[in-house]
Design a protein around this nucleic acid. Structure first.
Lengths: 131, 131
DNA sequence: CCCCCATATATGTAAAATGCCTATATAGAA
DNA sequence: TTCTATATAGGCATTTTACATATATGGGGG
């Protein structure tokens, strides 16, 4: 998937794939670049990226965050100062920002892919419908 | 993923997900709607949809085709008349065409998602870069 | 004739991702 | 007290993915 741009490729490439599941990662990174915050709030803010509340599973969000932390894209610390259950505050790392830029390239490429598909689809079916 | 349009939803929904792997399916269906043919040729024609030859794995193509046949989206028969190894000729079914239309809706939706992301990305980083 | 190559289809398998469910804890409101 | 919202986390069955390998046909070169 990883459009062979740059030097990161299939298999182990972290911006590889274009599952909408993985698409959650760049969204989280973009939100964190905007402002450091915790998982629960990120979860709510994901809706602005077109994620339906039904498809936002807390388990999935937290797993993405922990995984990104393992990979060094984000960093976290506990915040117990504000009452209520403890929050794990996340912030993006320099490496995370780098990957975010790589994602932007991948996403641009994939957007074009979808556009190309839709063009072909439309021209193929307008013909059929006319006849 | 399955944008909650219409009545097909998560989990068992066949147009769910937006992995580029799954994106191969609507591409195959569109090619087959254009012309019935066999897997090996489909594999080569996938390049026009932006699949790099490196990421086109024969095993994956054939498995997609068999899976779509199980689901009733395509139908196949052996062609041994033309010399060389036997070919499995595929054609799209009525149900397959239906699903192709559903895919077009999903893909339109996801394209918009990617666009929205890129807009946000650009506006966020133009600011940062300026400063 | 034999070997290599392009054509053509298919399976095995380990690793990763996904969806869905459940567990845990805090604290305010009813 | 009980219910609800906030907040994080783990279990687990199924699906997907990447990659490697197996099998067969037939043409061309040596």
């Amino acid at each position: 998937m990883c459009q062979d741009v740059g030097n990161h490729h299939k298999g182990s490439c972290r911006c590889a794939g274009m599952q909408m599941g993985r698409f959650m990662q760049p969204c989280l990174l973009l939100l964190l670049h905007r402002q450091s915050t915790h998982g629960y709030e990120l979860m709510q803010n994901l809706e602005e990226f077109g994620f339906a509340s039904s498809e936002i599973d807390p388990g999935t969000i937290y797993r993405h965050l922990r995984k990104m932390e393992e990979e060094g894209l984000v960093r976290s610390r506990w915040d117990t100062e504000q009452g209520g259950p403890a929050k794990r505050l996340y912030e993006i790392t320099a490496e995370g920002e780098e990957i975010l830029h790589a994602w932007a390239v991948t996403i641009t490429f994939n957007k074009q892919r979808l556009e190309r598909f839709l063009e072909k689809y439309q021209s193929q079916f307008q013909k059929t419908i006319k006849k």
